[in-house]
């Protein structure tokens, strides 16, 4: 027990927690923004894979990590809109469209990697680039906190900035308001002249962009290669974090940290006798519990409303 506590309170633990949180946080923010516009983005997982392989390929071809990132983000937006086109314009169920995208991405990324480089399942022959790490001035010199917060991949800082950006966009801009209105009640939004389709395309595009950052972090930050299904469910975990965080950017950021904490903790557990499987289960159980409690409250609220309506009548 003592060694476990020492593990958690070590500087290395804090650092690795932020590192593993990064891709989850990006995916979770992507889930928040699309869900708020009334479209559930199950395709986050696939978009992250597409971004991951694109980042590796583009950075290897151009020799620049930043151009690689740009390519990855563009492909992510493109595929998010592709999925959106099928849902919004052709009437495919959004969940099935997302699953289809995941299926395409899971095999398609491996296929494209093989065609482009001859590598089977892992990009070992490609000289792909990695996004730079940044040592924060001043902060890096603070004891304990410095080494936890400083020295991360630049995308980790982007993720933290993205929390604020998404919050600001959704709650402080007119477009964000319209986007949320479309999610709350598409009919009322349409009746005041908001284009529901356009807002949903926008939401999916931003969702794709955010998931794209997450995927790029995996193959150009977390590690320096792409491998088959390297997302390992992080897109779905993003959806879970969004659900646990009440579909709000700040709550979701905290939920993502919680998932990152459990993930980092389970790595520490492996050296001890506590089965890591249980630790890794905790965030999902918490989401399940949160989902149940939240739904129960909603139901109680609506029942109370109905009762009151009856009394008035």
């Amino acid at each position: 027990m003592g060694s476990m506590l020492r593990g958690i309170f070590s500087v290395g633990f804090g650092y690795s927690m932020l590192r593993v949180t990064t891709p989850i946080l990006f995916a979770a923010l992507g889930a928040v923004i699309s869900e708020r516009a009334g479209v559930v983005n199950i395709g986050l997982e696939g978009i992250m894979l597409i971004s991951g392989v694109s980042g590796v390929l583009f950075s290897a071809w151009t020799g620049s990590a930043w151009l690689g990132l740009l390519g990855a983000l563009l492909m992510s937006i493109l595929f998010a809109l592709f999925m959106g086109y099928f849902h919004i314009k052709l009437g495919t169920d959004i969940i099935l469209a997302g699953i289809a995208l995941n299926v395409i991405a899971s095999g398609g990324t491996v296929f494209v990697l093989y065609v482009a480089s001859g590598d089977r399942g892992i990009s070992s022959s490609l000289a792909s680039k990695v996004m730079p790490t940044i040592s924060l001035p001043v902060i890096s010199r603070i004891p304990v906190l410095g080494p936890i917060i400083s020295g991360h991949n630049v995308l980790t800082y982007f993720a933290l900035l993205a929390v604020i950006a998404v919050w600001y966009f959704m709650y402080k801009t007119p477009v964000g308001l319209r986007l949320r209105a479309v999610g709350e009640s598409p009919d009322s939004a349409a009746s005041v002249g908001i284009s529901v389709d356009r807002m949903r395309f926008l939401a999916l595009g931003i969702s794709g962009l955010l998931a794209g950052f997450g995927g790029a972090h995996l193959s150009m930050g977390y590690v320096s290669w792409f491998s088959r299904d390297m997302t390992a469910g992080r897109g779905f975990i993003g959806l879970a974090a969004s659900a646990l965080g009440g579909v709000h950017p700040i709550g979701t950021a905290i939920a993502s940290l919680f998932f990152g904490f459990a993930d980092a903790l389970s790595n520490y557990m492996q050296s001890l006798s506590i089965p890591s499987e249980f630790v890794q289960m905790i965030p999902y159980l918490a989401t399940l519990l949160g989902l149940g409690i939240f739904a129960r409250q909603q139901m109680a609220k609506s029942q109370k409303g109905r009762k009151q309506a009856k009394e008035v009548a």
Binding site: G233, P275, E277, Q280, Y284, L291, G292, F294, A295, R296
Partner: peptide, 26 residues
């Protein structure tokens, strides 16, 4: 969870995948 509380079976079944995956592995 869906019938009692109206909790989305989409999210719950997704979470249960991971819970029982880990539990089974354990």
């Amino acid at each position: 969870m869906k019938a009692r509380w109206g909790a989305s079976e989409l999210v719950s079944s997704l979470m249960l995948n991971y819970v029982f995956y880990r539990f089974g592995l354990y």
